[in-house]
């Protein structure tokens, strides 16, 4: 474990805490894409299939359980909670997220880490995570008013994978000296998708103005 990876995991955890805080305190999920949240449930479940078969560390197991548990809880809030589900921006959250699944699965079959079920699903989860934010970014472009917690959530979510890229560079030079095409390329694509958002988010933060993404 290096500081970059720990910072990445904590940033990821913080993004989820911010999202849960928004939903629980404001009893609203306005501006949050249910489709992105559903994709994250799939990402975590297909990535952590080894949860009970491979013990890496207490930290690793605990974080996997937290990520699976919180992502399911967020989907539950947005779909079933009697108050929160009324605030879901159903009409704007229209990205056909299920269309992302077949290409990622085919790519996982073509370029798996290893040709075993768990490794194909692990690769699938890496590819899917890279594009899972698309529905959320589309929704932000359509939201006339992005609240601070939603903006912070997306920013932290993008920042976590950027920190992971630094972790991979660090590990390459200090530990493994091996190139990891699957997570590295996917991580770069994932972080690049946030570039536009990062630009407007930092600009709005510097100018103390409301965050708005050009349509």
């Amino acid at each position: 474990m290096n500081i970059f990876r720990l910072a990445g995991d904590m940033t990821h955890l913080l993004s989820i805490v911010v999202l849960l805080l928004k939903i629980r305190t404001t009893k609203s999920c306005a501006g949050i894409s249910l489709k992105t949240q559903e994709l994250y449930v799939i990402v975590f479940i297909t990535r952590y299939l080894d949860l009970f078969t491979r013990y890496v560390s207490f930290y690793n197991t605990a974080m996997k359980l937290v990520f699976i548990g919180t992502s399911v809880a967020i989907v539950w809030y947005m779909r079933l909670h009697k108050v929160v589900k009324q605030t879901y921006s159903r009409d704007e959250d229209t990205f056909k997220h299920y269309l992302l699944i077949p290409p990622c699965f085919i790519l996982a079959l073509l370029i798996p880490l290893e040709f075993t079920v768990t490794e194909i699903l692990w690769s699938f989860s890496i590819y899917l995570e890279a594009v899972a934010i698309l529905p959320q970014l589309l929704l932000l472009q359509r939201s006339s008013n992005i609240d601070n917690l939603t903006g912070s959530y997306v920013f932290l979510l993008g920042a976590y994978r950027a920190l992971y890229i630094v972790n991979w560079v660090y590990r390459f030079f200090t530990e493994t000296h091996k190139i990891r095409w699957i997570p590295w390329i996917s991580g770069l694509v994932q972080t690049a998708l946030y570039a536009d958002f990062f630009y407007y988010y930092i600009k709005s933060w510097k100018n103390h103005e409301k965050l708005r993404l050009p349509a």
Partner: peptide, 10 residues
């Protein structure tokens, strides 16, 4: 096994 290094990350 080299891939363990891959799977010790979240």
């Amino acid at each position: 096994e080299e891939d363990d290094e891959m799977h010790d990350e979240l």
